[in-house]
Simulated assay, not measured.
Amino acid sequence: MSTSPHAINWFEIPVADFARAKAFYETVLGRGIETMTMGPSTMGFLSMSPDSVGGAIVQGEGVAPSRTGTLVYLNGGEDLAPMLARVEGAGGSVAVPKTDIGSGFGFFAHFIDTEGNKVGLHSMG
C-alpha cells in the first residue's frame, strides 16, 4: 500500500442549498461539477483526480456551513485573481483580497460562499 505525500486526502465543504452552491462553485472555479447521490447525501465533486487531493460540496444530514470551522484552501491555479474576481458575481463575498504571503510562499485570499462557509484560495502567482 502506498501512502500519499499530502496532509489531506479528502475534504468536504458543507452546503445548505445544493443547487445554489453548485452554481457558485462552477462559476468561481470556471468548470462543471459532477453530482452524485451517496446514501442520504448529495455530493458535487470539486476534484477526483487520483493524482491530487479530492474534495466535494456536500448537502445532507449533519452538515452545517460555517465561517469559523476548518479553513480549506482551493488551488487558485497560476494566479488566484481570476477565480477571486468571479466570487461576488456568483453571489459570494471577498473576505480577504489577494495577499502576498511573502518569503516565496505565493498568495492567498479568503471568500465567503453562498452558504456562509469561509474558503481560501492559494496560488504562487
Rank of each mutant, 00 (worst) to 15 (best):
G54P: 04
Y73L: 09
G77N: 01
G125H: 11
I13H: 06
W10K: 08
M83A: 14
H6W: 14
V94G: 01
T99N: 13
E88N: 10
L46H: 05
S123R: 00
M36R: 14
A109Y: 02
N75G: 13
I13T: 02
I13M: 09
D17C: 06
W10H: 15
K98A: 10
M43P: 02
Y25T: 07
A85F: 09
F105P: 00
T114I: 11
V87D: 02
N117F: 02
G91D: 05
G62H: 05
I101E: 14
L80P: 02
G62F: 02
L74K: 06
E12T: 03
T35Q: 13
F111R: 02
E34I: 00
V58Y: 10
E115V: 00
V94Y: 05
F105T: 12
A95H: 13
Y73P: 06
V15H: 08
A85H: 03
R20I: 00
E12R: 03
M1C: 08
K22T: 11
G69D: 10
A7S: 13
I112Q: 06
E88V: 08
T3V: 04
V96M: 15
E115Q: 14
E34T: 00
P14Q: 08
D79K: 02
R86I: 04
P5F: 07
L74D: 04
F11T: 04
E26C: 04
R86E: 10
V58W: 12
G30M: 03
M1E: 13
G39K: 07
F24V: 09
F107W: 15
V28P: 03
G30K: 01
S66I: 06
Y25G: 00
P97T: 01
L71M: 12
S123N: 08
V87S: 05
T42I: 13
P40S: 13
G76Y: 04
F107P: 08
A23N: 09
E78M: 05
M36D: 03
E26W: 08
I57C: 09
I101L: 15
S93M: 01
L71W: 07
H122K: 04
I112C: 07
G89A: 12
F111M: 05
S103N: 15
M48Q: 14
G32L: 00
D17E: 14
E115L: 02
V94R: 06
S4C: 06
E34F: 11
D113H: 02
I13P: 10
A81M: 06
S41Y: 12
G39I: 11
A95D: 09
V53T: 14
R67A: 15
V119H: 05
T37M: 02
G54T: 13
P50D: 10
A21K: 05
K98T: 12
I33F: 01
S52K: 12
A16M: 06
G62A: 11
G106T: 01
V87N: 06
K98P: 14
S4D: 07
A23L: 04
R67T: 14
S41P: 00
A95G: 01
V94D: 04
N117Y: 06
V94C: 07
A23C: 05
S2C: 03
F107G: 05
A90C: 10
